[in-house]
């Protein structure tokens, strides 16, 4: 695996000058993914922050070929691009090796684009799909999505006198991807660059459909300072809210085990979207979330064939 210095020397395919916010987790995820490719890449992107902030006509921040089609079809669009590539390669009209990446936010992946993603995974296209998961529809102004965690306040499920924010737990999209029996699926976080880039490299080296779900904090939507992005992305992992793991041909492996597991409340405290949970009336919500996190972490360790570590 290349060092971070070596990665930094690789050509910048998402160039500076784009209009993503300071501290945006999505741009970190994208740059790390693109730096992890040693071959030319072609990118597709769902409608969302990443697309609108990087391609405002007549400008583009992309130094590689890029296609945005619509909101729910990044996977289907890239299926078409990758198939066109295979058609030309078969006829001897093209010889270069190319890595194909489809990006989508959680709205474009967990929700409106889930069918398109499922189709692409099932058909077996040689494409890496990366979801930059910032846990709400940030581009339209922080509306709740299927990825929004229980208890988070969003503009469509705001906290109020009789509401503690979103009542449902987020869906487990990585598990849904795994259920397609694809050769490589993983969960990563922009807080752990080495883990993220090695997963992307591994995915590129694996033929067939790949899926990586990357937690990408959004300072605007999560209500934190823009210099806190990496710290918050790390703490999400350390609290086991967002475990780092990979599933290679069905075999689970936890790729990072925190030495100390702080309570999830420590992660909540840093974000304005969970502020209301610290009211006495909502204390039980934090406890319920904590117990769900513990349950899922134990299940993940069991799936990975590991014993549960002693409580710290």
């Amino acid at each position: 695996m290349p060092s971070i210095k070596e990665l930094a020397k690789r050509p910048e395919l998402l160039t500076s000058g784009h209009r993503l916010c300071a501290g945006c987790g999505a741009s970190i995820a994208v740059r790390m993914a693109l730096h992890s490719s040693d071959k030319p890449v072609i990118v597709s992107c769902a409608t969302g922050c990443l697309e609108v902030a990087t391609t405002i006509y007549p400008y583009t921040a992309w130094n590689c070929s890029f296609i945005h089609n619509a909101f729910e079809n990044s996977a289907a669009t890239m299926s078409g691009v990758e198939t066109a590539y295979r058609a030309l390669k078969k006829k001897g009209k093209l010889s270069a090796d190319i890595n194909f990446i489809a990006f989508g936010g959680d709205g474009g992946t967990y929700d409106i684009g889930l069918q398109s993603l499922s189709g692409m995974l099932e058909r077996g296209h040689n494409v890496l799909y990366i979801c930059y998961d910032n846990e709400a529809y940030m581009n339209t102004g922080i509306q709740r999505s299927g990825a929004t965690p229980r208890g988070a306040s969003t503009t469509t499920a705001p906290a109020g006198d009789v509401s503690y924010g979103k009542p449902q737990f987020q869906k487990d999209l990585t598990a849904i991807a795994v259920a397609h029996h694809i050769p490589y699926a993983a969960q990563a976080s922009v807080g752990y660059w080495a883990d993220l880039t090695s997963k992307v490299e591994k995915a590129f080296a694996t033929p067939g459909p790949k899926f990586i779900n990357v937690l990408a904090p959004c300072p605007r939507g999560w209500r934190h300072d823009s210099d806190q992005t990496v710290e918050i992305a790390k703490l999400a992992v350390d609290t086991c809210f967002w475990p780092l793991y990979e599933v290679v041909d069905g075999a689970y492996r936890v790729t990072y085990k925190p030495k100390e597991i702080p309570p999830v409340a420590e992660w909540f405290k840093l974000q304005g979207r969970f502020k209301h949970l610290f009211k006495p009336a909502n204390q039980h919500i934090i406890e319920e979330i904590q117990s769900k996190i513990n349950e899922r972490w134990s299940a993940l360790l069991a799936a990975s064939g590991e014993a549960q570590p002693s409580k710290s």
Binding site: A76, G80, V81, A84, L88, S116
Partner: peptide
């Protein structure tokens, strides 16, 4: 024929894949 056929999961994806394929240049 030596066409690559994509048997998609919906017409929405059919046209989406066509856009990707045509933009790719075939």
């Amino acid at each position: 024929v030596d066409t690559e056929i994509i048997l998609v999961e919906s017409e929405h994806s059919a046209m989406s894949a066509c856009v990707g394929s045509a933009a790719a240049g075939v």
